[in-house]
């Protein structure tokens, strides 16, 4: 489990990182926390010619919860440690789903090292943070040596371990939309064999209620049941205007499960995953709704 030979560059700034990406293109791999990349390199499943370390780039480590021209969004630098995000109280109030999802990401020890951007850029379809990004419609800021562009989650996640990031681009920042509805609730859950494992199926939901108890805004999604984390905007829209009665929730969960496309592996068959998709979807919608209702 020794990695194949590679050259190592430590970037001092985002610009330096972008320059290196421009020079080396496909043969370079960015490393942040290394929680996925290092084992893959050790098993020689990934053999980058160059390893570009962005851990020292302080400009990539920040959390901005205040309104600074990006109203209704929280900005998180790509290289911000997951544990830092998890402990940020202001952020937890504004993007509660993110903190709920983080509780399922590995263990305390891995979260101390793992980064927000690293997990999203790695784009494992079973991983929690890509799912949270998909559900909330987060935006990924991609920077190259010549340009910066914003890519929404729905097009950012292109397939298993595949994103819209170009070979010369670096994920700089993730923008998480903040819902300003007062009665907003969220929930995240998953089934994995052990705590901290990649989920067989994960599910998250965010629900906003009006004063009359009707759903005014809804979003939910599933991980582990498709090529990318899945959100179901059409099904979520169907919940808007309802009181989130059992029947509405059940049919949303059933349709989400039907629309998902799970695979089979050692621990779960496609049928089991589809079943879990239905059960967990209903659970997170109900739990998010409960939480929203509690905010009178």
């Amino acid at each position: 489990m020794k990695s194949a030979t590679f050259e190592y560059i430590r970037a001092g700034s985002t610009a330096e990182a972008c320059e290196a990406l421009k020079q080396e293109g496909d043969s370079i791999k960015l490393i942040a926390g290394g929680q996925s990349l290092i084992p893959m390199m050790a098993m020689r499943l990934v053999r980058p010619a160059w390893l570009l370390d962005i851990n020292e780039v302080s400009a990539l480590k920040f959390i901005t919860t205040s309104d600074d021209g990006h109203r209704n969004a929280v900005r998180i630098g790509a290289c911000t440690r997951q544990s830092v995000v998890e402990r940020d109280k202001a952020l937890a109030e504004r993007v509660p789903l993110l903190r709920q999802a983080l509780g399922y990401v590995g263990h305390v020890q891995t979260r101390n090292r793992g980064t927000i951007g690293g997990s999203i850029a790695h784009a494992d379809p079973c991983a929690e943070l890509p799912l949270a990004a998909q559900i909330l419609g987060a935006s990924m800021i991609l920077r190259s040596s010549s340009a910066t562009r914003t890519v929404p989650a729905e097009t950012f996640f292109a397939g298993p371990m595949t994103t819209a990031t170009g070979a010369d681009e670096c994920l700089e920042e993730v923008r998480w939309p903040v819902w300003d509805e007062r009665r907003t609730g969220s929930a995240f859950t998953e089934i994995s064999t052990r705590h901290g494992d990649f989920a067989m199926v994960s599910a998250g939901a965010q629900i906003a209620l009006g004063d009359d108890g009707r759903c005014v805004r809804a979003s939910f999604g599933l991980g582990g049941v498709g090529q990318t984390p899945l959100a179901f905007p059409r099904l979520a829209q169907r919940l808007v205007g309802t009181q989130l009665e059992d029947e509405a929730v059940r049919s949303a969960a059933e349709d989400a499960a039907a629309e998902s496309d799970p695979g089979s592996d050692l621990f779960a068959t496609a049928a089991y995953r589809r079943h879990l998709a239905r059960v967990l979807t209903a659970r997170v919608i109900r739990a998010a709704c409960e939480q929203a209702r509690s905010k009178a």
Partner: peptide, 16 residues
């Protein structure tokens, strides 16, 4: 062997 790493050969942790 389908469970040749600790990703697939699952040892109970303090959580289990």
């Amino acid at each position: 062997l389908a469970s040749g790493t600790f990703m697939d050969y699952l040892i109970p942790s303090a959580m289990e």
